[in-house]
């Protein structure tokens, strides 16, 4: 992990619904422009979108950092939100703390974190109450 990435970029995520999803589209477009492995692009797009929506809905804004390497992509998503009290429960498919308003918009299916985990090769989540949440994801080519 000490190798320098070929390309690294940070994308701010605002805490509003109007621009939600835009950072994920940028991440995907960069990987497409590079001509990266299409399977990785597909998985990065799904996971990054879900993580971005979590940052918007619960984190009050944050940042997505992408590092592109020859055979894998690292995505780090950080917010300064309230933190997740029970990570184990949050990872259960179908569990959601979404508000009624979010559910009416089609969110809150309880598929966010499970989708992120399913689409990444390495998934690490750290959350501290009152400080925020950080996701470290690795997507390997051919994996």
């Amino acid at each position: 992990m000490t190798d320098q990435p070929l390309f690294k970029k940070a994308f701010p995520v605002k805490g509003d619904f109007a621009s939600a999803g835009e950072a994920s589209v940028k991440v995907k477009n960069i990987l497409k422009d590079i001509g990266y492995d299409s399977g990785v692009i597909r998985r990065v797009a799904v996971a990054t979108y879900e993580a971005e929506m979590n940052v918007v809905m619960y984190g009050g804004g944050g940042e997505i950092v992408m590092a592109v390497n020859a055979d894998h992509v690292n995505i780090i998503i950080v917010d300064q939100g309230p933190g997740i009290p029970d990570i184990k429960q949050a990872l259960v498919e179908g569990y959601s703390t979404a508000t009624e308003e979010m559910r009416e918009m089609g969110f809150g299916a309880g598929m966010g974190l499970p989708n992120i985990r399913k689409n990444s090769n390495e998934f690490t989540i750290d959350s501290e109450m009152g400080k925020g949440t950080r996701l470290d994801l690795v997507f390997r080519c051919g994996g």
Binding site: F17, A18, S19, A20, G21, E22, S24, V25, K28, A45, Y49, M53, M105, G106, F107
Partner: peptide, 13 residues
Amino acid sequence: QVHPNTIAVATLK
């Protein structure tokens, strides 16, 4: 569903 996030999903996919 029809709000800007719907379009973000459609764009991404």
